[in-house]
Simulated scan of single mutants.
Amino acid sequence: MTLAELRRQLLELQHLPDNTLVVLAKDGEGNGFSPAVEAIPGMYLAETTWSGEHYQTEEQRLSEPDPDEYSAAPDDAVLAVFLWPTN
């Protein structure tokens, strides 16, 4: 899913009240759920078609007190929006 696709789908939900909860599934089979707590940009490196690694953007990494504590994103990582669950 791209950000444009997400925006299109969210437009279809604009009739819902602002206090409607956003909940993330643990996996594609619905084996658990957790409310979303944050949406942030970052870098994503796919390892398989269903799993990969999160990295900070270079700007995020350099704004850390100790930027060397975090690995730079590999060259083939792509910009992504990450939806973080509460748990």
Rank of each mutant, 00 (worst) to 15 (best):
Q9S: 10
P67T: 08
G42K: 00
A72R: 00
L13A: 13
G28M: 10
V78G: 02
G30S: 06
E38S: 14
L10R: 05
E5M: 10
K26W: 04
L79T: 08
E12K: 12
E29A: 13
W50M: 09
Q9I: 00
W50A: 12
L45M: 11
F33I: 09
E59P: 00
L62E: 14
H54Q: 11
E58K: 10
S71R: 07
T2N: 12
P67S: 06
T86R: 14
G30E: 01
V78L: 13
H54S: 04
L6R: 02
Q9E: 14
V22T: 11
L79W: 10
T49I: 08
L11D: 13
Y70C: 07
A36E: 10
P74L: 02
L11G: 12
E59V: 11
T48I: 04
T2L: 02
P67Q: 06
A36K: 08
L83T: 08
R61V: 01
P85R: 01
D66C: 06
A25R: 13
R8S: 12
R8T: 10
E38W: 04
T57C: 06
Q56H: 12
P65A: 08
D68A: 13
M43F: 01
D75T: 11
L6H: 01
G32H: 03
N19M: 03
S51E: 15
H54A: 04
E69V: 09
F82T: 05
S51D: 13
P35M: 06
V23H: 01
E58L: 11
E69W: 08
N87E: 13
E5R: 12
Q14H: 06
N31K: 12
W84S: 08
D68K: 04
E38C: 09
M1N: 07
E12V: 05
F82S: 06
E47M: 12
G32R: 05
A46W: 12
L3D: 08
I40S: 14
H15K: 09
D76P: 00
Y44T: 00
A72E: 14
N87C: 07
E47C: 09
Q9K: 11
Q60T: 01
W84C: 06
P67G: 05
A73S: 09
M1F: 10
N31A: 13
P67W: 03
E47N: 15
L10Q: 07
Q9R: 14
A72K: 01
P74T: 04
Q14S: 15
L83Q: 02
F33N: 04
S71E: 15
A4G: 10
S71C: 10
Y55T: 00
A4L: 10
E59G: 09
G30V: 06
P35A: 13
D76A: 11
F33C: 07
E53G: 00
L79Y: 13
V78F: 06
L11A: 13
Q56E: 12
D68V: 05
L45K: 15
W50E: 15
A39E: 07
G42I: 00
E59Y: 02
D68T: 11
L13I: 02
T86N: 12
R61D: 00
E5G: 01
Q60P: 01
P74Q: 05
F33T: 13
E58C: 03
E58Q: 14
N87T: 07
E69R: 10
T2A: 03
N31R: 14
P74W: 02
K26N: 04
G52V: 03
A46C: 03
R8E: 15
K26V: 05
P85H: 01
